[in-house]
């Protein structure tokens, strides 16, 4: 009896600690992380010098040409999710070094420190204009958003959480593909996440995937292209093979706009290309349209 109550107390204490830790988790701590290094930088699309501070105020869109810059996962959540509704889930996984690759741990530690993330993917519960959903965002600033064991696990967990709560899920993808350093384990994440999408889909729940710049490789060939509805940001690079690999294989230059989201929309692989400023409204609308009516 005594030991049971002891254990219960211990668990309560741990849970309390956990709650404190989560509430001061990524969301609050990273608020002023994205102050850019240089105040003025060149837009890669139109080559004009832009004021980064103004750029951030403009939702990371170039004032001159409308180029969408990459967004940090945390900023994305702040941008898409209603204020104070986000609750981060799936903390506490640790990436290991299965193939004992030299320098992988150091690299991870470096990125962890630089980005304040534990991996290239965060997910949790949130509301979009009052519509509840599970939201998952990949961060391409963490090792190019590559999918290793932990990213695969967290993506799978986010689907499982959505199944458990019977919620729709929205995932923003941004990834260079599989994580080379984890070898075959990284490859298997493709099958794992795809099968998680299938389980979620079998429950009759909605999955919206939003492709952002850049989404390539193993992520494109798994959960990114399995959404019931696939949206994309303008001019995002989306493809299976990287442009450089294709150029090397076929020995010729690729046409302008190849593998960009407008191209994919034209070829029929994206439902709609949506400007960042309209994204939140569109998502809320889509979520509302998928309420059960009977």
């Amino acid at each position: 009896m005594n030991s049971i109550s002891k254990t219960l107390n211990k668990r309560k204490k741990l849970k309390k600690n956990l709650k404190n830790k989560i509430s001061e988790g990524t969301y609050n701590k990273v608020k002023n992380l994205d102050v850019p290094k240089g105040l003025y930088e060149k837009c890669p699309s139109c080559d004009k010098t832009i004021n980064m501070k103004k750029n951030i105020e403009n939702d990371y869109i170039c004032n001159h040409c409308g180029n969408h810059f990459r967004m940090r996962a945390i900023d994305r959540i702040k941008y898409i999710i209603d204020e104070d509704t986000f609750a981060e889930k799936g903390l506490g996984f640790i990436t290991l070094n299965p193939l004992f690759q030299d320098g992988y741990e150091e690299k991870l530690a470096k990125y962890k420190k630089a980005t304040n993330l534990d991996e290239a993917y965060i997910y949790g519960f949130g509301q979009i204009f009052g519509q509840p959903c599970v939201i998952g965002v990949m961060d391409s600033y963490f090792l190019m958003g590559s999918m290793g064991s932990v990213v695969g696990e967290k993506v799978t967990k986010s689907f499982e959480y959505a199944i458990y709560k019977k919620l729709p899920i929205v995932i923003f993808t941004a990834s260079g593909g599989a994580r080379m350093q984890e070898g075959i384990f990284s490859l298997m994440q493709m099958a794992k996440t795809s099968s998680a999408v299938a389980s979620h889909s079998n429950m009759g729940l909605l999955y919206i995937s939003v492709l952002t710049h850049p989404t390539t490789g193993g992520v494109t060939a798994s959960f990114a292209t399995l959404g019931d509805i696939i949206l994309a940001e303008p001019n995002a690079l989306v493809g299976f093979a990287g442009p450089r690999v294709i150029e090397q294989t076929i020995n010729q230059k690729l046409p302008e706009g190849f593998q960009r989201s407008e191209f994919l929309e034209e070829k029929g692989f994206v439902d709609k290309v949506i400007h960042r400023k309209d994204l939140k409204r569109s998502l809320a609308k889509l979520l509302a349209l998928h309420r059960r009516s009977y």
Binding site: S195, A198, N202, T220, A241, G242, I246, K267
Partner: peptide, 26 residues
């Protein structure tokens, strides 16, 4: 591996592989 080429990308290489993973698991 899957072929990296213009035609393959136009016809959705990533999508085709993803569909196989999705359906095969079911």
């Amino acid at each position: 591996g899957a072929y990296p080429g213009i035609g393959a990308e136009e016809r959705g290489q990533g999508h085709a592989i993803a569909q196989n993973l999705f359906k095969m698991s079911q």
